[in-house]
Computed example of a mutant assay.
Amino acid sequence: MAGVRTVRGRMMPLERDDVDTDQIMPKQFLTRVERTGYGAHVFHDWRQDPSFVFNDARFAGASVLVAGSNFGSGSSREHAVWGLLQYGFEAVVAPSFSDIFVGNCAQSGLLPVRVQHETYRALLATVEADPGAEVVVDLEDTRVDWPAGTATFDIDPMVREALLHGLDDVNLILAEEEHIVAYERRRPSWSVRVPVEGSR
């Protein structure tokens, strides 16, 4: 996965708290074995309502979703993150997130941006006044900039590093391969050992 350093784009406002993964990616779309093709199904049930923000042409092509508190709660399903990414979002800005959702973001390259509630309200006010307003999320400086202001945001240091360098759990383990091999070679012969190339 590619690293994430800066996200720049227009915002889509989703002024709802406690948006859970069951709504982001409904269960009927979880039977696929591929990791692709989920973007079309994001918020499938809510999109049946013509007034739902995803049906508002003013926000078509937005790459930053501005959502309410406790975003991504509910069941742990990576499909929700995959769907948001494949729909076109590169970052989600919210006052708070489910921890499991943040972990899934780190594994897939979606930037979760936890801001103060005042910043959340300011972003909503900005996009309400100008649906074409752009926001810039700088992961290196943990800063959000928009036409009317700037603010810092919180992110777990490990999640930040994983996103900056495009590292999922497998990559993080492989980065420690030298230490893992050394450990396996030091283990006593009577213990269960994992075969390591070059060890006896």
Rank of each mutant, 00 (worst) to 15 (best):
R58C: 11
R35L: 14
L124Q: 06
W146N: 07
V135K: 00
V194S: 13
R114G: 11
C105Y: 13
I100R: 08
W46A: 09
S191A: 12
R114I: 12
H117R: 15
Q86C: 14
V135G: 01
S199F: 14
G72K: 00
D156V: 01
S75D: 08
E177P: 00
R193P: 09
F71H: 03
V196Q: 13
V53C: 07
F153D: 00
A91N: 03
R143E: 15
L174F: 15
A67G: 12
S199E: 15
V127Y: 02
D169V: 12
V42L: 03
D156S: 10
T31S: 15
S191C: 11
V42W: 08
E184N: 15
G198W: 04
D156E: 08
G103T: 02
S69D: 15
V66Y: 00
E78K: 01
V42D: 09
R10A: 14
E78R: 03
H44M: 00
D56W: 00
A162I: 05
D138Q: 12
Y183T: 13
G88N: 01
V4K: 11
C105N: 03
H165I: 05
G166K: 04
L30M: 09
A122I: 02
V81H: 10
A91S: 00
Y120M: 01
F59C: 06
P50W: 12
R187G: 06
G68C: 10
E177H: 11
G37Q: 03
T21E: 03
D99L: 04
P13M: 00
L164V: 05
P131I: 11
H117T: 08
V64M: 06
S199A: 15
S63E: 07
D156C: 08
G103P: 05
A67W: 02
P147H: 08
E128N: 10
P26M: 02
T119I: 09
A67C: 09
L123V: 05
Q28P: 03
D49G: 13
N104C: 09
A182N: 08
V136E: 11
F71S: 01
R200H: 14
Y38Q: 02
R47V: 04
R187C: 02
G37N: 03
A91M: 03
A125C: 04
D138Y: 08
G72C: 07
E118G: 13
M25L: 15
L84E: 07
S191V: 12
E177G: 11
A91E: 07
G3F: 00
V113M: 08
